[in-house]
Amino acid sequence: MKLGIIIGDVRTSVPPAEHLDQLLRQVEAAQRNGFTHITIGQHFMYGDLRWLQPVPVLARLAAEVDPHITLATNIVVVPLYHPVLLAEELATLDIITAGRLVVGAGIGYRTQEFDYLGVPYGERISRFEESLELIRRLWNERKVDHHGRHWRFEGAEPHLRPVQQPHPQIWIGAQSAPGVRRAARLGDRWTISPREPLPALSRLWETYRRERETLGLPVRPPIMRRDLILGRDRTDALERFGAMAQGRYLAYANRELAALDADTVASNFSEAVKDTVLAGSPDQVIDQLRAIHDAVPLDAILVRPQWPDMSAADVVNYLDDLGRDIAPRLTEFAAAPL
């Protein structure tokens, strides 16, 4: 099993130059500690939190990391883009990263972002599906005629193709049975939400696998996004995680993320996250990972090392702890037969 990070947001009170410096220190520490995936998500107009945009960030990081490091948008909000713009941005990024790009693609969930950019929220799924179909064609065909619900082209001649052929891997996140079937149909791997408890994971994995087999497509192990915190024991680890992340989880709940209940997050944080956070001593965390991996044959786990109000030193210490106590033991998790 591989290990990766997802780069998060910081408060807008942090000067932009300091923000970049912290980000680069985080990436250096991750690479030094055996992490092989560097990923970043996306938001727009995010108020008092700053989320750097993924395409320019990953282009900058391409010059910082070793050739074996995977760089991923996880995720880019596909329905908010015109597909020609997104196809060319991502093809350019794949060229800059020398073919190390993975495209994590999502439909988005914040209605405000759609309102700001003038995209009807109710069209996000149809735009997502049509965009992915069109982007693949723009990456591979000499001329493109397209007559869809949202876009029309006659004799369009693409001039940018990614290094990876036929295209970079596309990861699609989903946390419901219809979404998982869509991910199986349109993507190359399923990415698992950080807030799916184990019983739901098992059911959704079976849904994904059956759909891929029905479509005659290869079944690849999924990627799991999961929060992970070490401590003396599980109680201590959850208390530490509350100090790091409770405010951010409450912000998530208040920013339309339906999987979180704001009242529970505010009043009993440990209870709110107990089924979805990997927490405890190193041995306890490995046991929790093993239980998940036995049910769902993971390819990689992505953790978030930085939360608002953490210092750069805090983030580096967190990554050093995982590099010492968790990363070397992931070799225990052999790829499960599919």
Rank of each mutant, 00 (worst) to 15 (best):
G8N: 13
S13I: 13
H19D: 14
L23W: 06
R32I: 05
F35E: 01
H37R: 08
G47W: 06
R50V: 05
R50C: 07
L61Y: 05
H68Q: 12
N74P: 02
V84N: 07
L85K: 11
L90F: 00
A98N: 15
R100S: 05
V102M: 03
E123M: 02
F128A: 05
S131I: 08
L134M: 14
L138I: 14
H150E: 12
W151M: 09
F153G: 12
V163G: 00
Q169N: 10
I170V: 11
A174R: 03
V180F: 03
R189N: 10
S193C: 08
W205A: 04
T207R: 04
R209N: 01
G216N: 04
L217T: 11
P222F: 00
D227H: 14
G231S: 06
A237L: 08
M244A: 14
M244Y: 12
G247E: 11
R255L: 02
A258S: 11
A262P: 08
T264V: 13
S267D: 11
V273D: 03
V277L: 07
P282L: 06
D283P: 10
D287N: 12
A291H: 08
A291G: 00
A295R: 14
V296S: 06
Q306Y: 03
M310P: 03
S311V: 05
N317D: 12
G323M: 05
R324D: 07
R324K: 07
F333C: 09
A334K: 12
